[in-house]
Amino acid sequence: MAGSTLEIKDLHVSIDDKEILKGVNLTVKGGEFHAVMGPNGTGKSTLASAIMGHPKYEVTSGSILLDGEDVLEMEVDERAQAGLFLAMQYPSEISGVTNSDFLRSSINARREEGDEISLMKFIKEMDASMDYLEMDKNMAQRYLNEGFSGGEKKRNEILQLMMLKPAIGILDEIDSGLDIDALKVVSKGINKLRSETFGCLMITHYQRLLDYITPDYVHVMMQGRVVKSGGPELAQRLEAEGYDWIKKELGIEEETVEQNA
């Protein structure tokens, strides 16, 4: 089975009437790993949130298509059911809902009524994935993200990614706040998903994530647009030389969206 295709065309997004994305074009196909890099404040996380349908972000023009279907017409849960997944930078804490109840509800949400995952199978899968991510087993019974450390939250996002097996995974700064050991474990989980049926969009402003997860394509965002695309060598050059050479090349003085709004 071939993978899915996520197409983002001339996407404009505002928050509180302030335009953050000013025409993003990007296509992610099954089997491909894309990295979106760029300094802070250039719209990278806005792109991730807009694809998933965050209530605060308003798409003012452009389109997002998943296998030709209009994602912008879908509710957030429909986007997930269609195959999108966003590992969030700041996952919500939900008191009183255990991690495992939440995960089971999420898995069953994409299955037909009467075809729910059996409790045994679920526990087996969850145990295996938690082992793989070197997570403490009691995290299954803890309330969703409540009191989790930064690192635990990130692992928990990847646990969900591994168990929900989306067609397209978007990782919003999954590396932020992780020490090197945690980063290795999280990367191991993401690399395990590599296949023809899984496409991945990684948002980061550190090259170091890409030392563990090699991207096929690298894109640089500035001023709310993708200003440069290339292969893994682009990330290496950014690591070595920073972003100034791109700014010079493109005649950009200030890379953030703020100054140009």
Partner: peptide, 29 residues
């Protein structure tokens, strides 16, 4: 909280079910 709803829904859970989970969680103590 709309952000909590968004988080749960982003995993495929319907709005109604997400609200149900949040309410039960709220009464869990």
């Amino acid at each position: 909280d709309p952000i909590q709803l968004y988080y749960l829904m982003s995993r495929g859970i319907s709005k109604q079910e997400a609200e149900r989970l949040i309410i039960h969680g709220f009464l869990a103590p």
